[in-house]
Simulated assay, not measured.
Amino acid sequence: MALPSFGYTPPATENVKLKPSIYEKIIKVGATDTPILNKIGTSNVTSPLLHSWITDTFEKPKKNANLELSKFIGETKNTTQKTSNATQIFISEAMVSDALLKAKQYGGNEMEYQIGKKTIEHKRDIEYALFGLGRDTDVKKSVFKGYVQAGANTSGEMAGIFHFVAKDKENFENKRRGNVLAFDETGDWSGTATELTEDKLNQILQTIWDSGVTPKDVFLGAELKPAINKLATRILKDETKLVGRVISFETDFGTINFHMHRLLSSEYGLGDVLIAGDFEFMKHGLYIPTKIEEVPTDITAQAKRIYTQSTLEVRNADAFAIGVGLSSKTSVSRCKNNKTEDK
């Protein structure tokens, strides 16, 4: 019987032979490939199967005027909620033959090169999971799926950010699914996308602001980049472009940082998506922080494994809002309307 990572035999109280995590070191590698993972902090996960956290909400402001001699009312409501997510195991492996390890070649040691490459791929796999991608052939179903808890013959799968921001809503109603706002012509993320304007951006940011949180960052892909460039140029009164990683400009809700994200593209089915929020309320929950270990093999080769067991923790879903069904281009129907008006 295999001894699992959490196993030990008395008088031992833990497996002290496990090597320390290199998570903090690898998080700096290929930072532009995983901008959300590199932005959010970490939290400590104590269960290998299911991680839970408690959230609470404030009541909306109300009139509060009282007599000097007032009765004690003391009305208290229990509004705390428990939210959970499953941990997921990420594994990336590399194997290099002894002969190739000995050979002199461009690029230096082959195993070092392969591990460097696998480190970036490992991080990109985690970022992919943060979005809930790859869980269904239909991307628009995949990203909303809940977690799958690990079992004897079942791999644990974490739920992504869309699932939590949807706030348990199963469908779009009045162009909303929790804090996911649909701007396509049918209002349910199935119709033709409409142009991303300052008004629509403000609607997304207003959703966060109304919950008592100040939005700080926006992530979008190359397909929505022209629309943000247009807004930035108008607001800043000069030729400003979202080039590379980030630009910042003032909105009605304070200074917002705009970041490019490669996964928010048509290749992954998310080219019409914009994600906004205060990412201090999102954490990468680590049960087993990233480690690199040698793997025994009976062939003439050296094998290494990169291993992480973790989950996504969205501590306050109201700190985020997602706009879907957006485009940098004016919709066809709007163009027709404009032509009619011109006539």
Rank of each mutant, 00 (worst) to 15 (best):
G116R: 06
G254E: 09
I299T: 12
W209K: 13
K118W: 01
G212C: 10
G254I: 09
E198W: 05
K104A: 13
S310T: 10
F90I: 07
A31P: 04
N44G: 07
I247H: 09
K329W: 09
G146L: 07
T192K: 15
A232M: 07
T197G: 07
L312W: 00
P4A: 05
I204A: 08
Y8Q: 07
D33Y: 11
V165E: 04
T197V: 04
G269R: 05
I120P: 00
I204H: 04
W189I: 00
I22E: 08
K102V: 07
S327A: 10
S265M: 10
A65H: 13
F131I: 08
G160H: 00
S97E: 11
S248K: 14
G285F: 03
I256P: 00
E68Y: 12
I306N: 04
P226R: 10
S142F: 02
M95G: 11
A193D: 05
I40F: 07
F172C: 01
H259K: 14
I235D: 13
H51Y: 04
G146V: 06
S328K: 08
P10Y: 06
T214R: 14
I292F: 09
G41M: 13
W209E: 13
F90K: 00
G323W: 01
K77R: 14
K60C: 10
G156V: 03
P20H: 08
G7M: 12
F172A: 00
I40A: 05
K17W: 12
N66I: 14
P289W: 06
E280K: 15
E157R: 03
P48E: 08
N64L: 14
P4V: 01
T79L: 15
A2T: 08
I27T: 07
Q88C: 11
P11A: 09
F258G: 02
M282Y: 02
V218F: 08
K25W: 06
S70Q: 15
F164Y: 09
E127H: 13
W189H: 02
F258T: 05
V295L: 15
P215V: 05
K175A: 15
D125K: 08
A31M: 12
L67H: 13
T13Y: 06
G156I: 02
E24M: 11
H163F: 14
G271N: 08
K225V: 05
I322V: 09
T290D: 07
Y147Q: 06
T42A: 12
A301S: 14
H259Q: 06
N85I: 00
G254N: 15
L130F: 09
A2Y: 12
V218K: 10
T308M: 02
A227Q: 03
I247Q: 03
T46I: 10
E110V: 11
Q203G: 08
W189C: 00
Y287A: 01
A321F: 00
S266M: 12
V165K: 02
R124D: 10
S43V: 11
A150W: 04
E223G: 02
A232I: 01
Y23F: 15
E75Y: 12
S327C: 11
W209R: 15
G134H: 02
I89A: 10
A166C: 07
K19H: 11
I247E: 05
Y147L: 03
L274H: 05
I247R: 10
V29C: 10
N85E: 01
T186V: 13
D188M: 07
P10C: 06
L49E: 11
Y128N: 15
P48A: 01
K237H: 12
T311R: 03
A303N: 13
L205M: 09
S266T: 15
L101V: 05
V324T: 05
T9D: 13
P10M: 04
K19N: 11
